[in-house]
Design a binder for these strands. Structure first.
Length: 189
DNA sequence: TGCCCGATTAACT
DNA sequence: GTTAATCGGGCAA
């Protein structure tokens, strides 16, 4: 069994951590799958929620690494981030898509769809599939109900610009598992 | 207090 | 391809 990722793993540059998460396995209450798409957000990056300083919503980003930053998107969806960097850098990795491997029945029930491809292919979708909401805000990523396992073998990582943002749109800080059919949107060749 | 808008999704044409 | 749904954060007044 691959190693459980501990806080130390996240206490590095978000630009190192993000690509290393591709191929890792994220479980929440025994449901989840292989991480196939993430995006990096750094405090010095105008698209980051921490860019304009600490607020109630983003407070956990300003704390120590290895915790969950969860926010409401468009008043409808929840999105899950892993806080990274040494404490105070206020940066995080947005988990955007999983290839489902564990707890398929529970995820299908929560999502209300049968198609495996539509279970976790998007930040809002994967939170709904895993049953993640603001109740998990600030939880440690190396403690139950979270379990995050390092990838077993090297991954072929695709890189591209981030999705759905209007600021700092040109930074190539989106990472994906090359040719995975579970990414939320294909990577340009 | 009021207003604008978003790290999205599903259901349209 | 376009658009409605839906609401809290952030900032101006």
């Amino acid at each position: 069994m691959p190693a459980l990722l501990r806080r130390k793993f996240f206490a590095r540059s978000v630009h190192e951590v993000a690509p290393e998460l591709i191929g890792a396995t994220l479980l929440f209450n025994s449901a989840g799958g292989v991480i196939v798409e993430v995006e990096a957000y750094h405090q010095t990056d105008a698209a980051a929620h921490s860019f304009n300083g600490r607020t109630v919503r983003n407070a956990v980003m300003f704390g120590p690494p290895g915790y969950a930053y969860i926010y409401r998107s468009y008043g409808i969806h929840w999105c899950l981030n892993f806080v990274c960097e040494p404490e105070g850098i206020a940066s995080a990795v947005l988990v955007r898509a999983l290839a489902p491997t564990h707890g398929l029945a529970a995820m299908r029930r929560r999502r209300g769809v049968a198609d495996e491809r539509l279970l976790c292919s998007g930040p809002g979708r994967l939170c709904e599939a895993l049953g993640i909401s603001d109740k998990q805000y600030g939880l440690a990523l190396d403690q139950p109900p979270f379990q995050i396992f390092a990838r077993g073998v090297a991954a072929d990582v695709a890189i591209g610009p981030r999705i759905g943002i209007t600021k700092a749109v040109d930074h190539p800080w989106r990472y994906g598992l090359k040719d995975s059919r579970f990414v939320s949107k294909p990577f340009r060749a």
